[in-house]
Simulated assay, not measured.
Amino acid sequence: MYGKEPAVLLEKDGPIAVITLNRPENLNAFNVEIRDGLYEAILAFRDDPSVNGLVICGAGRGFCAGADLTEFGTEPSVIRKRRIRLQRDLWDEIRRFPKPLAAALHGFAVGSGLEMAMLCDFRMAAPGTILSLPEAKLGMIPAAGGTQSLPRLVHQGLALEFALFGNRITAEEGLERGMISMIVPSEKLLETTIDYMKALVGRNPNSAKWIKSLVAHGLEMPLSQGLAREKVLVARSWATRR
C-alpha cells in the first residue's frame, strides 16, 4: 500500500545501530515482512564498519507479541516457513552477530519475541514487561532457539518449568532469574540501552567484538580449545595496538 511504513525501521546513533520492529497495530507480531526486514538489516549492520553495536526495540505498546499465527499458524505456512528458514536463518544470524547486541524490551516479549531477545547479549527491560514462552500451551515447541538459549541464561530446571508451563512473569522476576540484564524506567529505556552500548564499545570496538566472540563461542567448545582461541585473539589484539 502506498505510504505504508516498513515493518522494520533502521537508524544510527553514532556507532550504535537501532532496529525497530514496526507493526504496532499488530503488537509487532512476527510476520514474513518483519523476518525479511530483520534479516536484511542484520546482514547490513554486520558488514557496516561504522556500526560497532546494535539495539533491537519495538514500536508502540510492546516489544513483540510473538509469531503472527495468521501467517505462521497453518500447516502449509509452517512448511513454507521451514523451507525459507533453510535459505534465510534469521535466528542463527542474530546468534552469530559479531558485534555486541542488546534488546530493549517493554510491554511484553512473548514467544519468538522473547526468544529473539534471548539470542541477544543483553536484555534491558522497562518495569512490568511481560515475558512468556506460551508455545507449549498451544501444543507447539518454541521454534526460535528458546529451548537452547534459555538454559544458557537460567538454571535448567527453571528453563524447563518456564517453557513447559508457558507462564507469564514480569521483567523484575526475569531479572532475579538471570533472563533480564537491567530494569530501566520506561521513558529512558531506549536512550539508556543505546548509551550502555556506546560505553561498551567506546574504548576499543575490536576488543568488544573479540571478547564477545570468545565468550559466546567458548560455551560451545572444550575449555582447552577456548583457551587456545583466546591466545590467538590476544596476540592479534596486541598486534593491532602497535
Rank of each mutant, 00 (worst) to 15 (best):
A67R: 11
L69N: 10
M221Y: 00
E5I: 01
N167Y: 08
R88D: 05
V154D: 01
L138I: 02
P151F: 13
L233F: 15
G73K: 09
V110S: 05
W238C: 09
V32E: 05
A125T: 05
I169H: 00
L105D: 08
A228S: 11
G113E: 08
A208P: 07
A171M: 11
P127F: 07
L114A: 12
P185V: 09
N206E: 14
C64F: 11
L9W: 07
P151D: 09
K212S: 09
R46H: 11
E191W: 03
M1A: 15
K231P: 00
A208I: 01
L10W: 13
R88Y: 12
L200F: 14
L189D: 13
I180L: 08
F122N: 05
R152D: 13
F162K: 02
A126C: 14
D47Y: 06
S213V: 00
E230S: 15
S213E: 02
A109C: 04
G226K: 00
E173W: 09
I16V: 13
Q156D: 13
A7R: 13
S50C: 03
Q156A: 15
K4G: 12
E93C: 08
I194T: 02
F108N: 03
V215M: 06
L219P: 00
P100I: 06
R203M: 07
E33T: 05
P127T: 04
L101D: 09
V18C: 06
S149L: 02
V55C: 06
D195W: 02
N167D: 15
Q225T: 09
I211F: 09
G202A: 09
L200K: 05
Q225L: 12
G226P: 01
G202P: 03
R85P: 08
K4I: 14
I169L: 13
D36Y: 02
E220A: 03
E11D: 15
M140C: 05
N31T: 00
L200P: 05
L131S: 10
N52S: 13
A117L: 04
K12H: 03
G146D: 14
P205V: 04
D92E: 15
P100G: 07
V55L: 14
G58W: 07
M140F: 10
A102S: 01
C120A: 09
I94Y: 04
M116I: 14
E33V: 04
S132C: 15
F108G: 15
L43E: 12
T147P: 11
P49W: 00
I34A: 04
R46F: 05
G111C: 11
E75T: 13
E93W: 04
G178K: 07
M118S: 06
G62C: 10
S186E: 15
I19D: 04
W210C: 04
E25F: 00
P222K: 01
L138N: 13
P15M: 04
L153V: 11
D92W: 11
L160I: 09
P6L: 01
S132P: 06
S50G: 02
R35A: 01
S186H: 15
A109Q: 11
D13Y: 10
A102K: 01
F122W: 11
I141V: 15
D121R: 08
A126T: 10
P142G: 13
A126D: 12
P222W: 01
A59Q: 09
I180F: 06
G178E: 03
W210A: 10
F72T: 02
L175M: 08
A117Q: 04
P127M: 10
C120I: 01
L160F: 14
